[in-house]
């Protein structure tokens, strides 16, 4: 019997064990931001902090450029990625706008109007 595969749902990241494997260093670094000392160290020298956590060049670039979509494409888990967003004073609504090509205001308005609907 073949191993069960992760479902595919269009427009949706389903974070799975394979993502955990390929993005382990990335998520591990993002998770380290629950410690305030790590938040300070990262802010003091972001590139060195990425290197200390052994991020590969793609992961490091996504972090330094704050390319939020790419962090997700590379296997970042939203709960880990969000810790960096908070350090940048970004809310989940700001990220929602970025993920959907809307301004934050448009995204917030869409939620207030009952949310976004699909099929």
């Amino acid at each position: 019997m073949p191993a069960p595969t992760t479902p595919k749902v269009p427009g949706t990241y389903i974070f799975d064990v394979a993502d955990n494997g390929r993005a382990y260093a990335l998520n591990r670094m993002l998770g380290s931001f629950k410690d305030p000392r790590n938040r300070e160290m990262f802010s003091a020298d972001e590139a060195a902090y990425c290197d200390a956590y052994k991020l590969n060049p793609e992961q490091k670039e996504a972090i330094l450029q704050r390319d939020w979509n790419r962090m997700l494409d590379l296997g970042g888990s939203i709960f880990y990625v969000f810790k960096l967003a908070v350090m940048d004073k970004k809310s989940m609504q700001d990220l929602g706008g970025i993920f959907t090509g809307m301004t934050t205001e448009e995204f917030v308005a869409a939620l207030k109007a009952g949310g976004r609907h699909f099929g």
């Binding site: 269009p10 939620l111 976004r116 699909f118």
Partner: peptide
């Protein structure tokens, strides 16, 4: 209840 934080369907609500 229904919610999706990331991806093109971010903001999904299915009442």
């Amino acid at each position: 209840m229904s919610h999706q934080l990331a991806g093109a369907r971010a903001g999904l609500i299915n009442e």
